[in-house]
């Protein structure tokens, strides 16, 4: 029971990170029907940007409690802006021209972009692990039974809170603003939306920007939670987040968050109760099983085969 509650807390934290990345996949797939393979690497880049900003601020202003908190906040905002710029540039260069080209072209281009980003970071920042000093190590003890302490760390509280706040903002934007309306219109029928005067290109660019900004939140959280980032960190979290998007039903925003939570929980429980070595195998297996048996996901719409 105690282990269960502790793992539940850990799983929800991890799930929040996956859910934030998954939104980027699901929105892009919903609106232009492509798997944005480079999204995982965009997430990795955001973690690096947070790292650099955080290090720059703490190097100048010292390493006390208040500064650390402020530095994290600034890192989060800067990372969101710059990662959004990355995603915008990627869409502009590698995907926009291929819209309406044959179906494999954007996918191949995205794989190429993923390789490019990963190796760009490797060349620019080096191939070694990049750790940050441990921060926010304090924990809140929830309860204790049979000598096992169930605790939630401030980091975890922060991750869950920030995720919840940003999801609420994001939800408001998509559901209540003209921008969100344009996005949903493009998702349903891009050609019709264009006829009704919506700038489809701009709407798609905004979708990429929003997805990247949320991935940047995930990247900053990932960095604070694990305290280390390396250039190849984009691939596996990216695939897991994509699994989350598929599990929740691709194209569905609540589905992405739900899927992220489920994947996070499955991963932590699998590591706790079965085998930590095979946790990635479990994630990949879920991906295959869901796509084969339940391609519409939990909250998605079933795809109709058109002739």
């Amino acid at each position: 029971m105690e282990v269960f509650v502790q793992q539940l807390i850990n799983g929800v934290t991890l799930g929040a990170v996956y859910g934030l990345i998954a939104i980027g996949y699901t929105m892009v797939f919903g609106i232009i029907g492509m798997v944005n393979f480079a999204h995982g690497d965009v997430f990795m880049i955001s973690a690096f940007i947070s790292l650099i900003v955080f290090m720059a601020i703490t190097a100048v202003a010292g390493f006390s409690g208040g500064v650390v908190f402020l530095a994290l906040l600034v890192a989060l905002v800067v990372s969101m802006v710059i990662t959004a710029l990355y995603s915008w540039t990627i869409e502009r260069i590698a995907y926009r021209k291929l819209r309406g080209s044959f179906r494999l072209a954007p996918l191949i281009s995205a794989i190429g972009m993923s390789i490019l980003l990963m190796n760009f970071v490797q060349v620019a920042q080096g191939a070694r692990n990049k750790p940050i000093p441990p921060i926010m190590r304090d924990t809140i003890n929830l309860f204790e039974r049979n000598g096992f302490q169930v605790a939630i760390s401030y980091k975890q509280v922060m991750i869950i809170a920030v995720t919840a706040i940003l999801l609420a903002i994001f939800w408001y934007v998509v559901q209540k603003t003209p921008l969100g309306r344009a996005q949903r219109a493009c998702e349903q029928d891009a050609k019709m939306a264009a006829l009704l005067g919506i700038n489809v290109d701009r709407t798609i660019a905004v979708t990429f920007v929003m997805g990247a900004a949320l991935a940047a939140v995930a990247g900053t959280m990932f960095l604070t939670y694990y305290g280390v980032v390396v250039f190849s960190d984009g691939f596996v979290p990216g695939v897991k987040a994509f699994t989350a998007a598929v599990l929740g039903g691709i194209g569905s925003l609540p589905g992405a968050v739900l899927g992220g939570m489920l994947i996070g929980l499955i991963e932590t429980f699998w590591s706790a109760y079965f085998s930590i070595d095979y946790k990635d195998v479990a994630a990949f297996s879920i991906l295959a099983i869901v796509l084969i048996f339940m391609p519409q996901g939990l909250l998605g719409k079933p795809e109709v085969e058109k002739v």
Binding site: I108, S109, G112, I115, L116, L117, M118, N119
Partner: peptide, 10 residues
Amino acid sequence: FGICMVLMML
């Protein structure tokens, strides 16, 4: 290699 892949597709 990655740059080539993207450029070839374009």
